[in-house]
């Protein structure tokens, strides 16, 4: 079951008006989204927004009440499960099972041959510095190590679509970086990755496209860079010596706020950052930092959610 080669940007997964209800409670409400090959798709939102329910429908644990989920143009179903890799939010491993056997078992469940699964498990354990833990029982491992084992179980069968729910939870920065590297490798190989988290800072780190959901509904989606551009404010982070004269120009600068490391300069309407930079250089100020301020996803999310 080798993954089918796919052109970057090709739609791997399409959710069309997907709805899921539990009794009277609507967990996911008419959700549309498209996940593309060779890109990391951020499924974002606060706890309880409906992320996990959405993912469970994608991996075919539950089925939508309404709407359709298409994987490479086919309706999601049992036949397609082998082509997905799913890392659930909470670690799901057999505590008393040895690490090596656990991975072989989970690999076989994804349709790998026994030998093939063993080889893949060994290679990945080596790569993630867990080789010497192979014969140990899973509950002897630290939480971070278990998370890495779970990660291996998710990707060892080379899935076309990888779904990671809070993958960095409990990992130290070094291991988080290691996993990020591997995720980007898979992205480079043209796989699609769904990255779900409630920590929006993490998403900025990794995602190409995002979908923000809140209370079962999509709030915002699109390419992360585009979204940021659309929400950009006319402000600059500035650190400079001898800039006071320029900043006093009321036609150019609306106001200046002092931040920890820099000044936040909000420009007048119609004035551009280029104009400010040119004036600063002309005036002989020594500029050590000049950066157009982009709103964080957190700010965007809060402003979208608090919209009337």
């Amino acid at each position: 079951m080798r993954p089918v080669a796919s052109a970057d940007g090709e739609a791997i997964l399409v959710l069309d008006s997907v709805t899921k209800r539990f009794n009277d409670f609507t967990a996911v409400d008419r959700l549309n989204l498209v996940v593309r090959a060779g890109r990391v798709f951020g499924l974002l939102g606060p706890n309880g927004a409906g992320k996990t329910t959405t993912i469970r429908m994608i991996v075919n644990i539950t089925v939508p009440d309404e709407g359709t989920i298409l994987f490479r143009g086919q309706r999601m179903g049992l036949r397609l499960q082998n082509r997905l890799g799913y890392l659930p939010e909470e670690r799901g491993l057999y505590k008393k099972m040895r690490v090596g056997e656990q991975l072989r078992f989970l690999g076989e469940l994804k349709g790998m041959e026994r030998k093939e699964a063993e080889r893949a498990a060994d290679a990945w354990l080596e790569r993630l510095n867990l080789a010497e833990w192979k014969e140990r029982k899973t509950d002897e491992l630290s939480k971070g190590m278990q998370q890495k084992v779970q990660f291996i179980a998710t990707i060892m069968h080379e899935p076309e679509l990888i779904i990671l729910d809070e993958v960095f939870a409990g990992l130290d920065p070094v291991n988080a970086e290691l996993l990020k590297e591997i995720i980007l490798e898979f992205k480079g190989k043209g796989r699609a990755i769904i990255f779900s988290t409630h920590l929006l800072e993490q998403a900025e780190w990794l995602c190409d496209d995002i979908c923000l959901i809140n209370r079962a509904r999509k709030v915002l989606d699109g390419e992360l860079r585009e979204i940021k551009r659309a929400f950009r404010r006319n402000a600059v982070a500035l650190r400079a010596e001898g800039a006071e004269r320029v900043l006093d120009d009321a036609e150019l600068v609306a106001r200046v706020a002092r931040r920890n490391e820099h000044l936040e300069v909000v420009l007048q309407e119609g004035a551009s950052p280029q104009e400010l930079l040119r004036r600063l250089v002309q005036s002989g100020a020594v500029v050590t930092k000049f950066e157009q301020i982009e709103p964080s996803l957190r700010e965007i999310f809060i402003s979208k959610v608090s919209e009337p």
């Binding site: 991996v59 644990i61 799913y86 659930p88 909470e90 670690r91 799901g92 491993l93 505590k95 989970l106």
Partner: peptide, 9 residues
């Protein structure tokens, strides 16, 4: 242990 989520997927 939530293994079931992995199994059912």
């Amino acid at each position: 242990s939530r293994v079931i989520e992995v199994l059912l997927s």
